[in-house]
């Protein structure tokens, strides 16, 4: 069976597909949230680690790590769609990149916020100029820059392409920025943030962390598609298929 993928690349045909997918993603989100939260709060120990245990506050891990992962993943998704848009000149990919950005910015903010609330009881400070924290802050600035540039340009085509280029430049700079913050003195390097090591994590904690990550991911899909539908409607307002949809809505 051969699928014609370019058929889905037109906003008119993707609009109803997204509409049908949104409820599916909502159900998945709620289901995974329920499982992840139940497991995280009732099936895990109230202490973590040995001699210097992390107490109940470590439960922030179930939202901190997923939102940090999603914030980075969504930026990659954004740049991916932006690059596809620049190369193949498809309208839908730019709309997709646009729809991802605010959700990604929200996850970045949440990663910072939950990190601060975790840092206070475990490190004794809400904020520290640690490499990962600082990089996450820079990522937040990159999202804000993308959104600001896009909304400052009135011409949609120019806005799409200019902010796409900015996003790509940002992604190229991210490793350099991370490395420069991680290692401000090239003669020696150090970091406060614990290294991630998934294999050392207790199974129950890992299970609810991954479940919550999936839940956030499904939420990302749902929110992005909702925004995508709004963007499509606004941009295609003059097309006949939108008018037909409007008439159908009025009769209903």
């Amino acid at each position: 069976m051969t699928l014609n993928w370019f058929k889905f690349a037109s906003p008119a045909s993707f609009y109803p597909i997204a509409g049908r997918l949104i409820p599916v993603f909502w159900i998945l989100t709620l289901l995974l949230l329920a499982i992840g939260l139940y497991w995280g709060f009732f099936e895990t120990a109230s202490k973590l680690g040995g001699s210097n245990p992390q107490k109940e506050y470590y439960r922030i891990i179930f939202i901190h790590v997923p939102s940090a992962w999603m914030s980075m993943w969504l930026y990659i998704v954004l740049v991916g769609w932006a690059a596809i848009g620049l190369v193949f000149n498809t309208r839908l990919s730019f709309m997709m990149a646009n729809a991802v950005a605010p959700t990604g910015a929200i996850f970045t903010f949440l990663a910072l916020w939950t990190g601060a609330f975790w840092g206070r009881p475990s490190w004794g400070t809400y904020w520290d100029w640690d490499p990962r924290l600082t990089s996450e802050l820079v990522l937040f600035f990159l999202y804000i820059g993308y959104i600001a540039l896009h909304s400052a340009i009135d011409d949609t085509r120019r806005a799409d392409r200019a902010s796409a280029l900015l996003a790509i430049v940002g992604l190229i700079m991210v490793p350099v920025i991370f490395w420069s913050i991680n290692c401000p003195d090239p003669n020696q390097c150090a970091a406060l943030h614990q290294r991630s090591n998934l294999t050392r994590i207790d199974g129950n904690i890992l299970f609810s962390m991954l479940t919550m990550t999936l839940a956030f991911w499904m939420y990302g899909f749902a929110a992005t598609f909702m925004r995508l539908r709004s963007i499509i409607l606004t941009r295609e307002a003059e097309n006949t298929w939108v008018q037909e949809l409007l008439n159908a809505r009025r009769q209903a």
Binding site: K55, E56, Y57, R59, I60, I63, H64, T114, F117, P121
Partner: peptide, 16 residues
């Protein structure tokens, strides 16, 4: 109360 860390746990979850 989350073992006395309610403020931090619910502060984080609340914002999310």
């Amino acid at each position: 109360s989350q073992g006395g860390y309610g403020f931090f746990v619910w502060g984080a979850y609340g914002m999310v």
